[in-house]
Design a protein around this nucleic acid. Structure first.
Lengths: 263, 263
DNA sequence: CACTATTTGTACGTATGTATC
DNA sequence: AGATACATACGTACAAATAGT
């Protein structure tokens, strides 16, 4: 119709002939390429569906299918009555959401139990304070646990837990614990854990744990450190778990999010 | 107008009257509820589109829109000539959401680059097939990379990547790679990675990697296995990364959410 | 192996609803 | 109120993939 401004139309003749790729995918690709080239900058509006129909010589249904493809890739967003806006360039990062984050956190709790090994009061020195993200000189309760499978009683991991002194009475001399420590604290005090930050790193198993875990000294292990924070960002509890060998696998699923049409 | 069928229809009358929710969303919700209830178990086939048309008294277009919704949620997968299969049950209410899952996945990519070490075609034997979640006898491209910091060029990890043969031409003899492999594949083919499942476990560093990583043999390491799936749950790429010592720390933050209401 | 039936995928047309300007 | 633009929903037809005869 018009040959204005050298828009990247991917060989319109190929639409008619036998082509491996579906038309709506070709159009989606062509528009994505135009976005990548900067022909449609981020924040600008895309041509209307009617305009794209005419430009590519297809039905509105096909144009919409192409637009949906781009929407699912997060490249554009659409508003009734407004139009279609470029959201990002094709090269930008894709967003993933986590599916099983609860089970990831609480996975072990369902199939294992904590066997209490020791409990003592400690005052944080500089090194411990750095690890716990607190000030030196503060009082904490240090607990040592062995995590065992409920079925065969096999040791899975060794966990060292630090609880801020003011909350330590939540742990009243139990020998076995079957739920997360943070939940004991929440129940005994009026605190709500609102954030958990978790770091996983490889390390050699500390010697003194080898016996309790029936493992070789310095065996390759995962160290999982979790900081439990209340609403104010105050550290309530810190747990440092050591899981030797292949006894524990951390499993997480990320799913690409469907970007909403509206922002 | 009113269709009668014995099975769980969520108040058919509401289809006719003025309803806030679009029909295809109501149908998607009803089918998802049926999957959750176990009426359609995982692995079983859903009724055909024609059957759903009649059951809910809507056009095929509307049924397909509902199916697309469920497909994007990862609950079902569809194949021409076969039908629609239940892939998983709707996830239960989650209490924690992940804040930095994107950076968790792409963290390394921004600060490191991949140095290609080798590339070859392989046919999956039983063991490899089990690891890749595919059938034995399938063809894959196996690539070996060393991940290095861009600044000091220090080796961070050793990554073995398997790409399904039909997508392997996305990797055209590059010596260095500065973005995720899955994105190369997405750009070269019309697939979209919609789910990544990740498993982390401790292990000893395999001997043949020690040299490349300038590390001690059998050094404690993290092995991170990631399966990249398309929207049908088909495995497109598998990456197995080895990160020795404390060179790589996996950091994740969970934030508490209000528990979602049940169905 | 060819053929057919079934089922989803693609593509067309048309109409109306809804949101925005 | 009217025009514009996307959203939803009805219809039809044929292609492609698959399973079974």
């Amino acid at each position: 119709m018009n040959q204005r401004s050298g828009v990247s139309i991917p060989d319109p003749t190929s639409f008619a002939s036998d082509d491996r790729l579906a038309r709506y995918l070709m159009i989606a690709r062509a528009v994505a390429a135009d976005i990548a080239k900067g022909r449609y900058p981020v924040g600008d509006k895309l041509p209307t569906e009617t305009a794209l129909m005419q430009r590519y010589g297809v039905s509105r249904h096909t144009v919409r299918q192409a637009m949906r493809e781009l929407r699912e890739q997060g490249l554009i967003k659409s508003h009734a009555g407004v139009g279609t806006t470029v959201r990002m360039r094709p090269s930008s990062a894709k967003f993933f959401s986590v599916v099983n984050s609860i089970s990831d956190l609480l996975q072990l709790v369902e199939t294992t139990r904590l066997e209490v090994k020791s409990q003592q009061e400690v005052v944080a020195d500089a090194a411990l304070a750095a690890a716990l993200h607190c000030k030196a000189g503060e009082s904490w309760t240090e607990l040592h646990y062995c995590r065992r499978n409920v079925g065969n009683d096999e040791p899975v991991g060794y966990i060292v837990v630090y609880v801020r002194a003011e909350y330590s009475n939540a742990l009243n001399d139990m020998q076995f614990i079957d739920e997360p420590i943070y939940r004991l604290i929440e129940r005994a005090h009026s605190v709500r854990i609102s954030e958990v930050s978790q770091a996983t790193v490889a390390c050699a198993l500390p010697d003194f744990m080898a016996d309790a875990l029936d493992a070789a000294p310095a065996e390759p292990s995962m160290r999982i450190t979790r900081h439990f924070l209340d609403r104010d960002g105050e550290v309530v509890e810190v747990s440092i778990g050591y899981y030797p060998g292949e006894r524990y696998e951390q499993q997480t699923t990320f799913r690409a999010m469907k970007p909403a049409a509206r922002d």
